[in-house]
Design a protein around this nucleic acid. Structure first.
Lengths: 195, 195, 195, 195
DNA sequence: TATGAATGAGGGTTCATTCAT
DNA sequence: CATGAATGAACCCTCATTCAT
């Protein structure tokens, strides 16, 4: 039970993103996800423990892929400021690349269900860890202020990117999210260095 | 129908904060809120259109009160930096004063239900407007950078405070939220001025 | 309790006819009837035992008035055929005179609730008795067939008039109900006499 | 959704007839119908859109079957009077064969709910059409009066049969309904021919 | 008499999950 | 592995009725 690989596993994940994005979390019935994925209702339960597990897995897979890619990308530059700039840019680029996924990540997944929050916590923590790595590296390299509270700094960085991204998905007027990464980087960079 | 004043109106709002904080929005049965408020189930519907309206009204009342108080408090100082400092401090103080309310505001109210999002939008917009007022004032007084993008700056300020507050309510180890306002202010102020 | 006279008693009855005709039986809330009658909800219960009693009383009053008027009108002619003709004409004229009342009588009052059926039975029985009087008189006067089964004859007369009236109120194209009384009389009269 | 065939579909229909006959439409809880049919509550909604749809479908199935059988039966005789006699006899025999069904048809189905009235209209119209066919045939064959208003004649025939049947189901003293068909036929036949 | 705010019982419906095939 | 028909628990809301004023 709950075989976490295979074509159908991915198909269900992708179907869930689409169905949840288009219908909202509460109208994303298991049967609808199954139909979109081209499998029977019961098949979902061969790959996932329950509906909540689909959501959580979706987040884990997508977030995991993003974090891994970002980790690699960031490691390829030694400049602390460049790392921060790339972080913001990757964050925005990733969301802008798949609007459905962005909708699910920024809006639909913000459920208060304890189980979901718990399942989301771990991949999120890993991303937080990545951000804190950027901060610590900047401090070590004397690029950022030495008296930075790493956790607060991370909360500022993530909080800002998250809020900017949420406003973007909610907006009725289309504009480029990645196009904002330069300015957002500037704001954050100043906060981390300062006068 | 839907008389939006009176002792019972307030009693139901307060009961809703408590019950939703303790059980989550989806496990907060109307009958439980009614019992906590000391009224009959049906009485809820004399003051609110439906369960969703309770949550929305709760937000509107609490957020409205906070925004009004903050507006007054901020107006009492002419220093742009002091205004920003007070904004952060008021934001945190307000949430720390009522942990149940904070839980509802930071966690339970983040529902993807379209109706809830819609009901929340207006009071939130007003708060955003207040924050943007602080930014614009700082720019006018030549305290903040003249090239600031007001919306991005607001997203940084709100996003940061929101993320800090969310981590605080989710934390298992108790610590003071208001106690962080100084450092958060520093981070933000630097971002708005900067080298 | 349940004072069955007075201006408000009549006002409530008339309000009930209007509200039920316009909104249907299931949307005819007591509070709506009260508002239409210009009294408080509770006042209804000073004049009626409960909502069902309003319905039943409405029927009793209206049917009683009609039966009494019809009885008098029929007595004023000695011709058995003329009596039957007048019965049909009065039945149709009465309904056509107040479309709201007709709607309530032919459609809305046809509820399956046992209480209502019971309350309606008595005034209806009196009307049936009146019809049977017309039949018996016709037989006695050797105008109608001597072998008539009075009950069946009454069922034919009432059933026919009732069906014609129901089709009339349900019809979307307006036409005169009373204008049909001549033909309906002919059909019935032939049935009662026959070759 | 709403698969309108199969054993369970029929079982639910039959269970509904029984439960509604015994408890009345408004006291016929879906869960009671489900239990009587030997299925789960939710299963009802695999075969019907909602509770109202159960009642409407019940009528459509039963009325459809009756109309079809009657159409065939009537076609097997060329005598206009015989056709009328058979119509009355079939109408009564059908109702007498299933007292529960008769109760539902004559009493419980006479709801003022717009949805029910609408759902009932079509099968009823078909039956009306059948009756009018009998009348037209009689006129064509010069058996009935040439000046008959077909609609009024149909209303007399149906209204009379309906009223006789309603009195029969409502009666506390048991007697044969089909046993009345001869006399009822006589009454109607005379009305259609007449002196 | 009259008011109208408050009461609280009661049921239709959805949908995640199962399991016989 | 895959299916999809069947399950049944869970809850919001309405509205007739009451009673303190």
């Amino acid at each position: 039970m709950a075989k976490k690989t295979g074509d159908k596993y991915r198909a269900i994940i992708e179907a869930a993103v689409k169905v949840i994005a288009e219908n909202g979390y509460h109208n994303a019935q298991v049967s609808r996800i199954a139909r979109e994925a081209g499998v029977a209702d019961g098949t979902i339960y061969l790959y996932f423990h329950n509906k909540e597990d689909v959501l959580i897995s979706l987040f884990q897979v997508k977030m995991g892929e993003f974090t891994a890619a970002a980790r690699q990308e960031l490691a390829s530059t030694a400049d602390p400021f460049e790392r921060l700039a790339r972080l913001v840019h990757l964050h925005f680029t990733n969301l802008e690349a798949d609007r459905n996924l962005a909708l699910v990540m920024q809006i639909q997944l913000r459920q208060s269900d304890p189980g979901i929050r718990r399942g989301i916590a771990e991949p999120l923590r890993e991303y937080f860890h990545l951000i804190e790595g950027v901060i610590n590296y900047g401090v070590e390299m004397k690029a950022f202020r030495p008296d930075l509270d790493v956790r607060l700094a991370r909360q500022m960085i993530f909080g800002t990117m998250d809020e900017v991204a949420t406003c973007w998905v909610m907006s009725h007027h289309p504009y480029s999210l990645a196009g904002l990464s330069g300015q957002v980087y500037q704001l954050l960079a100043r906060g981390l260095t300062g006068a």
